[in-house]
């Protein structure tokens, strides 16, 4: 089975969020880039586990972005990917990104396309659904478990107030979230091996952006905490009822 794991580059989870150019651009100055945690901890690690159980699987990685994405692709190779593809276009429009991935999936004959449930910077949650629709494939979103039975994927996904077990024949797109696997750290052997694994750069398919980011803004600052003594919980209840008017 050919597995394609979609890898997005995001700022480190502790990175300071600030903007430049009159609040139109994210200030990447000094930012440490990481693999989007949902892509790495859940989608990629689950793909690696599947390969550990059946060595005939091949794991390819794809990232859509400029050369800044290569170190994180190398890290993903160090964790256990076999080959990486970088589509050489920088875009913040999900339709453009999905078009690039769908093109690679179509040409590469992939059986299982894994993504994280969303990126921690754009929070779009739209890539998997878009890729699936472009290729008219089924899509299981927000999966917390995934097992393969030949060419059938058995995935547990989150539904309102619970879980649902689904079965679907490949090819299929699945988005992963917490529960599917546990984060790993690449070992030295993996890091050495990753240096010589193929990382192919392909030029993008023609596609026009359907959206554009106009500006960013920060949330309004909090006024400051109002402290209540631990033996005055009635006062807290009064504040919540009369001042905040929420309970």
């Amino acid at each position: 089975m050919k597995i394609l794991v979609c890898i997005s580059k995001t700022p480190d989870t502790t990175a300071k969020i600030a903007f430049t150019d009159n609040n139109t651009k994210y200030d990447a100055n000094g930012v440490q880039w990481i693999i989007n945690p949902y892509d790495e901890w859940y989608a990629l690690v689950r793909a690696i586990e599947l390969k550990e159980a059946d060595a005939s699987h091949a794991i390819h990685l794809i990232s859509v972005g400029n050369a800044d994405a290569e170190p994180i692709l190398r890290k993903a190779l160090a964790l256990g990917g076999d080959e990486a593809i970088r589509v050489n276009i920088d875009s913040d429009d999900a339709y453009v990104i999905a078009t690039q991935i769908a093109t690679v999936v179509k040409d590469g004959g992939y059986d299982l396309i894994l993504t994280g449930k969303e990126t921690i910077d754009h929070n779009g949650s739209s890539l998997g659904g878009m890729v699936a629709e472009m290729l008219d494939l089924p899509y299981i979103s927000l999966a917390t478990k995934l097992e393969m039975d030949g060419s059938v994927a058995k995935a547990t996904r989150e539904i309102d107030g619970g879980q649902e077990l689904d079965e679907v024949a490949t090819p299929v797109v699945i988005s992963a979230q917490k529960g599917m696997a546990e984060a790993r750290i690449p070992n030295m052997r993996g890091i050495m091996a990753a240096r010589t694994k193929p990382l192919k750069v392909v030029e993008p398919a023609a596609c026009e952006a359907l959206t554009a980011t106009v500006s960013f803004e920060m949330p309004p600052a909090k006024a400051g905490v109002k402290l209540v003594a631990p033996d005055q919980v009635e006062e807290l209840v009064r504040l919540l009822r009369e001042e905040a008017k929420i309970v």
Binding site: D93, A94, Y95, A98, N123, G124, S125, S126, L127, G128, G129, M130, A132, E133, M134, Y139, S141, L142, E158, I159, D160, L210, T211
Partner: peptide, 22 residues
Amino acid sequence: SLMGKALAARVSVRLKAGLVTG
């Protein structure tokens, strides 16, 4: 929502419509 997320992405592609989620 859980359902809306999956639908909005697919519908936007079918309509070739720009999408903003969240």
